[in-house]
Amino acid sequence: MVEAIQSPANPNHMVPPADPPTSSSSNNNNKCLFQFPPLKRPTIRVTSEFDSDSSIFFHKISCKLLDSLAKLKLSFNNDSKRQISDPHIHFTSKYLSIDYDVEDHNAFLKGSFDFGPNLHFRAAHDVKAQQGEVAVVANLAKPGYALELSTAVPSVGLPKSTFKFPLGEISLEEREEEEVKKTLSVNGILKGQILNGMCTAVYRDEDLKLIYCYKDEEMSFIPSISLPSNALSFAFKRRFSPSDKLSYWYNIDSKYWSAVYKHTYAKDYKFKAGYDSEVRLGWASLWVGDESGKAKTAPMKMKFQIMLQVPQDDIKSSALMFRVKKRWDV
């Protein structure tokens, strides 16, 4: 049997080349080894405040840095002539704060950090005055008990020692007076419950002040006496409703007294009126925005106060004043 003769392969025939193997190393080389998060411009907060009594604008420009780990702020004043005064640059973080006075070319530094859970360290330094303070606070075994040692830098004597406990604190400090040798001064605060109220004794610079405070949901009564001057005074507060409150203060020794009536509507509106016998002045004010809060929580991020002052001895010299505070987020 004759086998079929196969024709030789066509020399002009092109065999398609095989696909090159995929190299994992080449793919890895195309990828970026370090990927940086996209840069985002921090929000800039601008706050301006105007007081008609002083006719001065107060401005603050601030922004948070490093994912809110630090804050940078510029503050300055300017008057009706547009002259800038008292510029300050503030840097604030968890462990360090710097306040730089541009006009005075001076910086005030404050720092604090913890040595473990029970030891806290803080320090302050005025660069131009070359003065400061260093303090160490140790939390003792029981909650509410702590021992603090603080001293001025440069040191001029023994450090001040303060022992804190749940009912108050006692401090021991070296004091130097003219023509008197250095002596140890004892100051302290002691609190305790007496007759359904809180009694507080404050001893400072050889003067003792006793304060008693009784408070319930509708009334507060706060008498106080200072020794050895025997100056006696008392304060009385009465809440008629959740939005109406009257406060009265009287000094028995000087016979001066003052009274304030306050009416609030919601959280952002408040009306206050009062009289002070020491300066013989009556006044009334209207607040738009929380009086003790920040502008960012007020309606349209703006706080507004208008006040009328009426002197008892010269009604014609009555004055109408206002204060405005506004914040912008840029």
Rank of each mutant, 00 (worst) to 15 (best):
L69V: 01
A70C: 04
K73L: 02
N77Q: 06
N77E: 03
D79P: 15
K81S: 09
R82F: 00
I84D: 03
S85W: 00
S85K: 11
S85Q: 07
S85L: 01
D86W: 01
I89L: 15
I89K: 09
H90F: 02
S93W: 03
K94H: 03
K94S: 05
Y95V: 08
D99N: 14
D99S: 14
Y100G: 10
E103A: 15
D104P: 13
H105I: 07
N106F: 01
K110M: 04
G111F: 02
S112H: 03
F113M: 06
F115N: 13
P117Q: 13
L119D: 07
A123D: 01
D126W: 12
D126A: 15
V127N: 08
K128S: 06
K128W: 00
K128M: 04
A129M: 12
Q130V: 12
Q130W: 05
E133R: 15
V134E: 05
A135M: 11
V136E: 09
A138Y: 07
A138N: 13
A138H: 14
N139W: 00
N139F: 04
L140A: 02
L140S: 02
A141F: 01
G144S: 03
G144M: 02
L147D: 02
S150D: 05
T151S: 15
A152G: 05
V153I: 13
V153A: 07
S155K: 05
V156M: 07
L158K: 10
L158H: 05
L158E: 03
S161N: 08
T162H: 06
T162N: 08
T162M: 10
F163S: 01
F163G: 01
K164G: 04
F165M: 03
P166D: 00
P166E: 01
L167C: 08
L167N: 14
E169K: 15
I170Y: 09
S171P: 09
L172E: 05
L172A: 09
E176C: 15
E178Q: 14
V180D: 10
V180L: 10
T183L: 11
L184C: 11
V186D: 06
N187P: 09
N187G: 11
G188F: 12
G188C: 08
G188K: 14
I189V: 14
L190A: 09
K191F: 02
K191Y: 04
I194C: 09
L195G: 11
L195K: 06
L195W: 06
G197R: 07
M198I: 13
C199Q: 12
T200V: 07
T200I: 07
T200K: 12
Y203A: 08
Y203R: 05
R204M: 11
D205E: 10
D207F: 00
K209G: 05
K209I: 12
C213M: 14
